[in-house]
Design a protein around this nucleic acid. Structure first.
Lengths: 186, 186, 186, 186
DNA sequence: TATGAATGAGCGTTCATTCAT
DNA sequence: CATGAATGAACGCTCATTCAT
C-alpha cells in the first residue's frame, strides 16, 4: 500500500493524486485505506518520513579521531550514501524534491526542520575544517547551503529528470565532491 | 491584477489560493477575471513568465573580446544581477522556488526548459573557461548543476526562508561566487 | 429554497434529509445551495429561527393595567396565538418538536434558551397571579413546565400526529386553557 | 452490552453514537455485536422496549372496587411509579425523550403506539371519573394529552436537563398531581 | 461463539468555470 | 467591458455492515 502510494504520488503529485487513484492502484476499498491511514496527508507523511530518516542516518558527523578516515573521505562517504539512498528510492526522491515543497505550513515546518538539521551538520563539519585549517575562511552558513543546493540539484537531474544521461554513481559523487572541495578554478 | 495575484499566490500557495481570493484582493468580479485569463493556470503562467524573462535577460554569455571585463567579473555580474532581480521580486521568487515545482507536467516542461537553457549557458561558460585554461577539467554538466543548485538554495534561504539572517547582497554574492570558484579547500 | 427545505426536513427528518434531497426538490445545483447557506445546519437553523421568533412574538407578558383584558383572557390570547402560528406552519412545528431535539450540543443550547425564556415568562405570569391572589400557591417552576408540556403535547397531536381528530382551533384552545386553569376536578 | 449501549446512546445521542463507540465501551469485537443484534437500530429498540415495558407496568388502571384506595391516591401512585422508574433509569429517560423522537417512521410508529396506549388508559380513567362525577366535563382526549405532556416536560427537566434544581421526588409528584387536579386557579 | 479486516454506498463540501444579463 | 448567480464534477472522509477465519 505504501509501495503503490509512493508510485502514485510520484507520478501524479500530491494534489493530483486522489484517494481513488491510490486505492484503485492498490486494489483495495475506500474504507480499507482509512483503516491504515487517518487521512491522505498521513500516508504522504509516512512515505516521506521513511526517506527522511534514511537520509538522516546516511549522513554522519565527521570524525577526527586517530585512525579515522580523512575528513575528505568521510565527506565523500556521506555524499555517496545520500546518493545511494536516493538512487534506491527514486520515487520518494521525486516526491521529496517536487511534491513536498510548498504543501502546507505544517509540512513545510517538518521539511524545514529536516534541512536545518542537515545544514547544521554540514556547517559543523565546515567549522571544524576551518579550525583544522583544512577549509578556507568563509561564511559556513552560505557554503553549507551551496553544498546542499548543489547536491539536491544534481540528484534531481541524475535520478529524476534524467538530464545528466547515464553516469556511474561513483563518478557523479566524485564530480560533486570535487566541485565542493576545489571549486571551478584550475 | 497580476500584482495582487502575485501576492496571493505567494502568501497562500498555488493550490490554496482560490480564484475567490484573487478577485477579492483585486476588487473585481468573477467574470472579469476570466475575461483576462482563460483559467487559473494562465495567470500563474503569466506571473512566472515575467520573472523567467527577467532572469533570462540578467544572465549574459561570458565575453572574451578585447576590453571585456574578466570572465570572473562577468560571472560575478551574472550572479549579482540574478540576486538583484530575485530580491526585487521576492513574491515571485517564492512562487518560482516553492509553488512552481511539481505543479503539473505541462508546467514542469516549461520550467525544465528554462533551467535547461540556463544550464546550457552556464555550461557554455565553463566549457569556454576550460578551453582558456581557467576552469579545471571536470564534467561541466555536473558543475553547472552544482552552481545552479547552490544559487537556488542560497537565494531561497536568504530571500524567502530568512534562514541566513541579514547579509548584504554584495557579500552574499561574493560568498557564492567564491564558493563556486574556489570550493571549500584552503 | 427555505420552503422546499422545510418540507424535506419535515418529511425525512434532519439526518435522513440529504443535501441531495433538498437541491433535487428545489431544482437547483449543488453549488447553488452553498451559495446561500454555509452548510446543512445553517438552513436548518434559519428555518427554526424563523419559527422561534414568531413564537416569541406571539407570547406576550400579562398586563394588569387599567382597561387591560383580564389575565385569563390574556393567557387565552397567548395560547391562541401560539396555536395559530404553529397551525400555519405545520411543517416547522413538526421539525421543532421532532427533529430539533437532540440534534447536537449547540442546537440544544439554542433550543434550551428558547424554552427557558418562554418558561421564564410563563412563570412570571404565574408569580404575578399568585401575588394578585388569582393563582393558588404552588411551585411556579413546576406549574410552568406543566403548562408548556401540555401545550407541546396537544399541539403535536393536533397539528402533526393527527391524533385528536378534527377539532376547531377555538375549542382546542379553550380545552387547554380550561385544563390549565381548573385542572381535572369538578 | 445493553448496559454500556444505554450509556453511550445517552451520552452521545443515537446518530453520534457509533457501533465503534459501543463495542469499545463494551470491550468486544465488531462481529460479536452483530451476533446479538442485527443492526444498530435493534439494540436501540431493545433498550427502549425495556423502559417502555417498565413504564407500561407502572401505570395501572384506576380501580373503583370496595376497599380500593381513592382514585386520586391511585393516580398519585401512577405518577409516583412513573417518576420512580424514570428516575432509576435516567440514561434511558434521556434516550426516550431526546433520541427516540423523530428517529424514523418505523420507530415513530412504535413510540406512537406506546403513547397512544398510555393515553387510552389515562383517558379511560378520566372518563370513569366523569361518570363518577369526580372529573369535570371536558374533552378527555385533550385533557389526557395535557397530563401526559406535563409529566414528560417535568420529568425531562427534573431528571435530564436539571432545570428544576434539587426537588424531592415526593414533592415533585405532589406538585404535578395537584396541578393536574386543581389547575392554576386559587 | 468470537473475531476484526475489509467493504462501499453515500455523505457534506469545495471551487474552477460558464454565461445570460 | 463587466458582472455575479449558477453550475456540477470531483473530492476526502465516515461508518454500518459483512464474512472468512
Amino acid at each position: 500500500m505504501l509501495r503503490v502510494a509512493r508510485q502514485v504520488f510520484s507520478e501524479r503529485g500530491y494534489h493530483s493524486a486522489s484517494i481513488s487513484d491510490i486505492i484503485a492502484a492498490a486494489g483495495i476499498a475506500r474504507g480499507t485505506f482509512y483503516l491504515y491511514f487517518v487521512n491522505k496527508r498521513a500516508i504522504f507523511d509516512e512515505l516521506l518520513d521513511e526517506l527522511l530518516q534514511q537520509l538522516n542516518r546516511s549522513v554522519v558527523r565527521i570524525q577526527v579521531a586517530d585512525g579515522a578516515p580523512s575528513p575528505i573521505e568521510q565527506m565523500r562517504g556521506n555524499v555517496h550514501r545520500v546518493f545511494e539512498v536516493l538512487d534506491e528510492n527514486r520515487d520518494l526522491t521525486k516526491i521529496l524534491l517536487r511534491e513536498a515543497v510548498g504543501l502546507d505550513a505544517t509540512f513545510d515546518e517538518k521539511l524545514g526542520a529536516f534541512y536545518d538539521n542537515l545544514i547544521a551538520r554540514i556547517q559543523g563539519g565546515l567549522d571544524l575544517g576551518q579550525q583544522l585549517g583544512l577549509v578556507r575562511p568563509c561564511d559556513s552558513r552560505v557554503a553549507a547551503r551551496c553544498v546542499l543546493g548543489g547536491v539536491k540539484e544534481v540528484v534531481y537531474q541524475a535520478l529524476v529528470a534524467g538530464g545528466l544521461g547515464v553516469v556511474s554513481r561513483e563518478s557523479l559523487v566524485n564530480e560533486v565532491v570535487d566541485f565542493n572541495l576545489r571549486g571551478l578554478f584550475r
